[in-house]
Design a protein around this nucleic acid. Sequence first.
DNA 1: ATTATTCTTAAACGCACGTTTAAAACGGAA
DNA 2: TTCCGTTTTAAACGTGCGTTTAAGAATAAT
Lengths: 205, 205
Amino acid sequence: MSRQITTKTKILNAAEQLFASSGFAETSMRQITNKADVNLASVNYHFGSKKDLTVEVIDRYLSQLMPDIATEIERVESISNPEQVLSCFVVPLMNLEQINRGGTTRFLRLLGRGYVDAQGHLRKFITETYSKEIAVIMAALHKSMPHLSEQDLFWRVHFSLGTSVFTLAASDALTEIVRADFDTEVTTEEILTRLLPFISSGFAR
Amino acid sequence: MSRQITTKTKILNAAEQLFASSGFAETSMRQITNKADVNLASVNYHFGSKKDLTVEVIDRYLSQLMPDIATEIERVESISNPEQVLSCFVVPLMNLEQINRGGTTRFLRLLGRGYVDAQGHLRKFITETYSKEIAVIMAALHKSMPHLSEQDLFWRVHFSLGTSVFTLAASDALTEIVRADFDTEVTTEEILTRLLPFISSGFAR
DNA sequence: ATTATTCTTAAACGCACGTTTAAAACGGAA
DNA sequence: TTCCGTTTTAAACGTGCGTTTAAGAATAAT
């Protein structure tokens, strides 16, 4: 532990960037270690395997995000509508920038890839590791829409998750189209601002 | 051209199935040719490369779907709300079953994977190849919501697309959760039935 | 200062990948 | 039957992959 930036962190940062922009399977360990400027074997030394690395890359964000969201929700004393719950996601998401610049977008992009990749491995990991926080979120949503059945709630949650994760996963391409077609620059925060009402409407119907 | 089912079709069917359930990068040519019960080299003979194969797999559906949607929209004389436009997608989507049983789900799953994979290659291919049909769809949507700015429309279209594609891409895992948690079986059509109102609400807000 | 532990390194390993080759088999036309 | 273009086949090619190894360097503990 003498380096200012440890080898482990350098690997995490490089891997995260490459995974987010190219995907897990399409990114090789040699690309990662080149970008991180560390030896090839150090990934296996510090993480065990490539698969373990991918989990740790995502969990670096999740381990901060999930408790943050849960406390944010518990801070709100009376919940009356779904938009209130959803807006509890925004600040914790934006705080991911503290881990890395552009971290919010990259995390959501990773989440999108992970959800589509590798039949449910990531989903399983998340639901098992953060079951407590997920329970808090679901309870709050249920409280905000007591008329909804559990199954209705379940589907709408996943529709919303899908929209968010997919949009952010594709946000590079989308912002490029917007730039070309409308001659406008778009930030992640702006996308979220457009996204929230869209999701809320679907939720509340 | 003597076989009843040609080698080319056998490859397309096998590839489609494997791509949909495991992803493009994670599926090898040897897996494909084994499943199709054809020789390994025949993929390169008939399609040129693996990449060309992936495009053809998706385009087999797109080339039927996109014109179908366009004509379906043009059939409706007066468009007043977005749900009318969106419902023009349902029948053409369901008709994909004619290409292959379970084709609708598989196609949407492929679309989801393709959109997240390989930085926008698929998106570019689609927008270039089916620009005419896309214009028809966008015009109809605009007509159904004349108050919306072009940029608003753009974002909501992609939010909707994201929700659909992501949900169907993850539908295996989701139906499994539903089975475990609610002890209920869910069909693709049921998912679409839940999905449409969700999207419409977001659209119309 | 010596030992023990942690970390880094270069090299190699075996394997699976997409692709190419060249010969064989096939099918219709002459 | 012979010929010719098309399709299929088995084998091999070279490449890049994730991982392992064993030795060396650096750091911490005694």
